[in-house]
Write a protein that binds this DNA or RNA. Structure first.
Lengths: 215, 215
DNA sequence: GCACCGGATTGATCTATGTCAAGCCGATTT
DNA sequence: AAATCGGCTTGACATAGATCAATCCGGTGC
């Protein structure tokens, strides 16, 4: 029998509790990242800006060609973001797990069709916002603006490093880099996806792993 | 006889004119990027925040291991930013020409030692600011803050695409991608640098170019 | 129980790209 | 004019990693 999603038989009031809990999670997260306390006034706006969305395994948050109308905070689950080349091969550009954001920034802010697909690798509980709500929230919450700046900063630096890794590292070094920068991913995602993320074939990843483990 | 830098025999008043001209250049640039007009009040702060700096060909704006105290707007010239791996090989991560900014964001904002070197490929005229002046300017000029957001956005998207290119393109495709995204670079930088930037050997770049041209 | 399926592994090739070495060309220096 | 130098090209060879095909293994469903 198929596994039942833990929400399937939740009565409404329980649902609501979960939703409240997720919001608190997001607040804690913002406090942690910005190293400050979000005031209650701002928290109200935060609550208004986000809504709950579930995406089951193998379902999609975003399809290539459509406009990315969500910015999603992952409260539970795991996702991948990829584009598909002319030969129909998926290339994963980003993973996300609890505490990560998923979206196509470019599409989200400029409302242009996205070249990416975002798919759930596990059942996901998300807090999502839209471009309008987001703009609203930024007007009313300095904490949230600050969060945005810090995340921009971080993601810029992370992609910078990833570029370095891809242009100058061997297969083995890329794997080591991944183990050091995002060890969580190794247990969370199957190897063929990790290989795609690293720009390697699954076979090469398998062989490299074996080598590394033998030391 | 060595070429004389065009500034070598400038009297002070001419220097100052050049400096004023460069500031205007920066202002025009900000107006263009933010699609708005920077008010004169803000322009005063802008002028205060930046000073003039010349970096001759093969000289450095930043050395690996030192803290990046400048954010530089290139008014004239061309630069490269690279890191050096254990084997002593340079890997170029970024080029800059007129209208581009050079800095190590991470080092500049967090005042940590940089892993990068920034070197002039041609004689450069720069407008530079420091972290303190920058903070000051951001307090006083919404236009400048907006500029920062737009540039963050853009550079994030650009690095995203560059990652895609490096993990999924063949050598030939990488070259085509460069020709499409930054055709200026091809005339401006020697091929061995372009090769490093693309993560290819100079020989491979040479062969690929030949192939592409024959079509 | 059996068939099936999505991954992971392993071995045997194939190929794109790197590496090494030589020579060329145009610019610069002496 | 000769020597030097930086950058580019070309050829011969080496190799990391891709590709293809077979097998295996643990779960899932019938």
């Amino acid at each position: 029998m198929a596994l039942i999603n833990r929400y399937d038989y939740f009565p409404p009031y329980l649902w609501y509790c979960v939703f409240l809990g997720m919001q608190q999670l997001l607040r804690d997260y913002i406090n942690r990242v910005t190293s400050s306390i979000m005031p209650d006034e701002e928290y109200k706006f935060l609550v208004d800006a986000f809504s709950l969305k579930l995406v089951r395994k193998k379902k999609f948050l975003l399809h290539e060609g459509s406009i990315c109308t969500y910015m999603a905070f992952i409260a539970r689950g795991a996702m991948k973001q990829y584009f598909t080349d002319e030969k129909g091969i998926e290339h994963i550009v980003r993973f996300g797990i609890e505490g990560w954001w998923m979206s196509d920034r470019e599409s989200f802010v400029s409302l242009t069709p996205s070249r990416y697909t975002i798919e759930a690798v596990e059942d996901c509980d998300l807090l999502v916002t839209t471009p309008e709500k987001m703009a609203q929230l930024k007007k009313n919450s300095p904490s949230f603006v600050k969060l945005g700046q810090i995340l921009d900063e971080r993601s810029y630096i992370a992609s910078q490093k990833r570029i370095e890794a891809t242009i100058s590292y061997t297969a083995g070094e890329k794997v080591i880099y991944l183990m050091e920068s995002n060890p969580e991913f190794l247990h969370r995602f199957p190897q063929n996806m990790l290989a795609s993320y690293l720009g390697l074939s699954p076979e090469t990843l398998s062989r490299v792993r074996k080598q590394l483990l033998s030391k």
